[in-house]
């Protein structure tokens, strides 16, 4: 699973992009966030408040209950501020 981080989530996680293989129990975006949080260090800090974390799966905005698989590209970022 390709994971991307943007803005302050990238700074806190300390990485902009990585490929990970979470356990089979990680079936949704919410599961992935919880799993990420337990990886500790910057990840714990990046995912401390999920209310300010937005997610895209395969470049589309999705909710926390969205299903994910290893073939997906998942991006984590703060609320967007275009324009």
């Amino acid at each position: 699973m390709r994971i991307l981080y943007f803005a302050w989530l990238r700074e806190k996680a300390g990485v902009s992009e990585e490929t990970i293989t979470p356990p089979d129990t990680v079936a949704t975006v919410a599961d992935l966030i919880e799993w990420q949080r337990q990886r500790g260090d910057g990840y714990g800090e990046a995912f401390a408040d999920t209310a300010v974390v937005k997610v895209a799966v395969n470049q589309e905005h999705v909710g926390l209950d969205h299903p994910i698989s290893n073939a997906d590209e998942v991006a984590f970022f703060p609320p967007v501020t275009g324009g």
Binding site: F6, A7, A56, H61, F77, P78, V80, T81, G82, G83
Partner: peptide, 14 residues
């Protein structure tokens, strides 16, 4: 266009 762009386009400002 500008209203939707502000909330949908994935840009962040530092």
């Amino acid at each position: 266009l500008i209203d939707w762009l502000k909330t949908q386009a994935p840009f962040w400002k530092l």
